[in-house]
Design a protein around this nucleic acid. Structure first.
Length: 127
RNA sequence: GGAGUUGGCCAGACAGUCGCCGCCGGUUGAUCCGGGGGAGGAAAGUCCGGGCUCCAUAGGGCAAGGUGCCAGGUAACGCCUGGGCGGCGCAAGCCGACGGCCAGUGCAGCAGAGAGUAGACCGCCUAAGCCGCUUCGGCGGCCGGUAAGGGUGAAAGGGUGCGGUAAGAGCGCACCGCGCGCCUGGUAACAGUGCGUGGCACGGUAAACCCCACCUGGAGCAAGACCAAAUAGGGAUCCUUCGGCGCGGCCCGCGCUGGAUCCGGGUAGGUUGCUCGAGAGGCAUGGCGACGUGCCUCCUAGAUGAAUGACUGUCCUCGACAGAACCCGGCUUAUCGGCCGACUCCCACC
């Protein structure tokens, strides 16, 4: 795996993977227009799945644009993230953000996710 | 030059860096390297028409739905082209569900006297018949006549003129219009300063039921096919009454289930269907045209939690609507601007 690539291993591939995260998600990070759910995995790297529903983002052009921005962000930040399965959900109004602020939002959310994951790991090892 | 009509095309460009998805070649044993490709004119709405797949090879009847001037094009169409008719515009041109209410049934508020085998409210008339009066000229009334005028209405049952009459009236005549028959032109719709005939509505409404002609079987790529953990007991072939199910509104019809013989079935997941096609471009040729035919050349997205992007720089006229999901042909809707061709009207100049 190259340093900055985004191969299939970094994605959630089927309904079972998604269900796994929805059933029990210890980490929740809220951002402007987006919500991240995450659950630790044993793979040694993060994986991500995207849910941009037609209901929340009406135009296909906007859905594609937002997904591409998220993937781009993950691709560049993958080494900072803990080994967790992530599901990113869109909320109403995301399509009004421009590319720059979406990227800024995502960076902030990854930072908070990383922080709470490190906290949890620390807690379990101390008890 | 200005105003307008119409047909077609384009959809920021270039460079660099980091990524994503197919394909080809090498390397391999599943990694790298190189090359090349990667959203639209509407990809959209899913409104029509086809291909493809399964249900029977999609068959018969009824029901239901659609289309609706004519001819042609097409795989097909509710599309396109040409023509006819009607309407709008000075014009180029644009728009039109544009078959049939003398097969039947129905509908028409208000106003108005009367609304479809018409109708006397006002008005006009009083010739003929009867009555009364009379200065013997007539006057009044009754019985009536009348669709020219007023008024109502979206619409009042051909129009104009002359004759005619008591007043009027297609009552008669001329012209116009209309119906019917023939003739001529046209493949046809239809047209005609054509010939004849009829005094003349046959009113409106069929996106009212309906009639006529033509068309339509149902479901859809999550169709369907294949490989196959788990789980449950069944599956294939032959024969066939009844009942049940498939099959979509119904019936006919057809298949499965039932009995006998023989052993494999198929949910999660994966593979496939999946892009070479009513394909694109060029030349020639037939046709007014839509389009057809022949030859040559080219291969031009195939994802499947779903690729086609992000960032930086430069330039300009500072960039709209918007993202393929089986594939085509249309229609409709959204859209910043730019380019090219043809034509019309007006002004100026020659």
């Amino acid at each position: 795996m190259s340093d900055q690539g985004f191969p299939r291993q970094l994605r959630l591939l089927n309904a079972g993977d998604y269900k796994h995260v929805f059933d029990h998600a210890p980490f929740k990070v809220h951002g402007k227009g987006m919500l991240v759910l995450a659950r630790p995995n044993a793979l040694g790297h993060p994986r991500i799945g995207l849910i941009f529903s037609k209901k929340n983002v009406r135009r296909a052009v906007d859905r594609n644009r937002l997904k591409r921005l998220v993937r781009e962000s993950i691709r560049l930040q993958q080494h900072r993230l803990p080994p967790v399965d992530i599901v990113l959900l869109a909320r109403r109004g995301v399509h009004e953000l421009d590319n720059e602020s979406v990227a800024r939002q995502l960076n902030g959310m990854w930072r908070r996710l990383e922080k709470s994951a490190r906290q949890t790991r620390h807690d379990t090892s101390s008890t």
